[in-house]
Amino acid sequence: MILIFGGAYQGKLEYALHNFQIKENDVFCCGESTEIDPSYSVIYGLENFIMGCVKEGKEAKEILAEYESLLKDKIVIMTDISQGIVPMDPAERSWREMAGRTMLYLGERAQTVIRVFCGLGQKIKG
């Protein structure tokens, strides 16, 4: 698995499409639900999936663990939401914490981890 993360609007998806020669129709865009389709090469917007888990009272990494073998050759893209002010809203607070736990889980399993900053990538693992 390749994990690509970075702040909002940093060009994470463009970076993946460009550097790993992925076609745009091979990208699964997560909605705010617990659904993931591992038939695509790229799983994009994992933070939305995590919000879906928060809303349905589930733990994201437990669902991801069920897909572990299927996600092995995927590119997973997620917005880093860990560096701002603690939100007032309890759901947003849970979202932020679950996102942190999920990043740790994915970062441990990924062969390659890349952080995208203003469109430029920094390889921090692999």
Binding site: G7, A8, Y9, I81, R96
Partner: peptide, 21 residues
């Protein structure tokens, strides 16, 4: 670098963040 908040902002703030990025 103002892009790593765990907040769903109002559209003014979100447009500003998108424009700055």
């Amino acid at each position: 670098y103002i892009y790593s908040d765990a907040r769903i902002f109002d559209s003014y703030t979100e447009n500003y963040r998108r424009a700055l990025a």
